[in-house]
């Protein structure tokens, strides 16, 4: 572990707990999917927890976060209540988006969580825009934009890196490189597979980091946001990671071997971090088990909340197609200012 940041016990336990929350939430989602209570597409985050937990830990409440359709981890790490998240999975009115978005489209204005974007690469322009607005308004916020390595194939990736660098916008680009865009390995899709290197071509600071190591991710993200907040323009972080489960619930995983999956599971970010914490005395014996019990209770509570949730009345189907106000602007007003 490359502990470049000072990691006290409280902080380390918080990182571990956050990763366990994500892992346990996803396990429950599988169960609910098999019970046909969650429908549609479901993309799970197992194996990639260190990326969102490490990065989101260094963000501030005023920062924007843009994520992909595999965003349960980012949503939980950002502080979206698990109850609202699970209710959204079940399509309930009490969900983050009244049940209209589902697993792939989580939005939460209070946490400046701008999707849940299910078009690969489609979130990057939004991130450039929120960063542009913050910069033009002189607000000290940044935008953190997550995307997979599949987005690197898209034109929008290149357009947006260029624009953010050209205008020196406060964007933290985080590429979650899990090696496969659905079933296509990186080497089949990209002539240059070194993604961090591509970003450097746009004249921004760019680094690749072990995405299975939450401490390394957090340290790299902390350095990155420091630069961005100092007005140095965008920074790019490639987090090399792996998803332990299939792309979605419909994926037979014919494109990768069991041996490869097992080899990556050996690097499980939760096991690895917990082991290291125990070694250096940051985790008491049985403490992980105790955290898991607490988290399971939270997951059960969220599930019960979601199951007991209500359905949006059909009469409201067309509500919000056109808006009659700009609701998020109350959130943007500085504290104490009259709207």
């Amino acid at each position: 572990m490359s502990a470049k940041v000072r990691l006290d016990r409280e902080r380390a336990v918080a990182l571990l707990r956050q990763m366990i929350r994500i892992r346990r939430f996803e396990a429950k989602c599988v169960e609910l999917y098999q019970a046909q209570k969650i429908r549609g597409y479901l993309h799970l985050y197992d194996g990639e927890e260190a990326v969102s937990v490490g990065v989101v830990a260094v963000l501030r409440p005023e920062d924007w976060l843009v994520a992909t359709y595999r965003e349960h981890g980012q949503a939980l790490a950002r502080g979206i209540p698990m109850r609202a998240l699970m209710a959204e999975m079940l399509g309930k009115l009490e969900g983050t988006c009244r049940g209209r978005g589902g697993s792939m489209h989580i939005f939460d204005a209070r946490n400046r969580f701008l999707g849940g974007n299910a078009i690969v690469g489609g979130g990057l322009p939004l991130a450039v825009g929120t960063a542009l607005a913050d910069k033009m308004a002189g607000r000290p916020a940044l935008t953190c934009c997550f995307f997979g390595e599949g987005a690197v194939d898209e034109g929008e990736f290149h357009e947006c890196l260029n624009l953010a660098a050209l205008w020196r916008l406060p964007v933290l680009f985080v590429c979650e490189n899990n090696l496969y865009s659905m079933g296509t390995p990186l080497a089949i899709a990209e002539a240059e597979t070194d993604i961090a290197k591509k970003a450097r071509c746009y004249r921004m600071v760019s680094e690749a980091v072990d995405g299975m190591d939450v401490v390394a991710v957090e340290a790299a993200a902390a350095c990155a946001v420091e630069r961005i907040r100092a007005g140095e323009g965008p920074v790019f972080l490639e987090c090399r990671t792996y998803r332990f489960r299939a792309h979605s619930m419909f994926d037979a995983q014919l494109y990768r071997s069991k041996e490869e999956i097992e080899a990556w599971r050996e690097r499980d970010p939760i096991d690895r971090f917990a082991r290291w914490m125990a070694e250096v005395g940051l985790l008491h014996p049985n403490e992980r088990a105790a955290i898991e019990v607490e988290v399971d209770r939270e997951v059960e509570d969220a599930t019960a909340f979601a199951e007991a949730g209500t359905l949006e009345p059909v009469e409201e189907l067309e509500r919000f197609v056109l808006m009659d106000e700009v609701p998020q602007e109350q959130l943007l007003a500085p504290a104490g200012a009259t709207p």
Binding site: T96, C97, G99, F107, D108, G115, L322, E325, P327, Q328
Partner: peptide, 10 residues
């Protein structure tokens, strides 16, 4: 986004 977010963003 306005509709899909449940009216959170205009």
């Amino acid at each position: 986004i306005p509709h899909m977010s449940g009216g959170q963003f205009a």
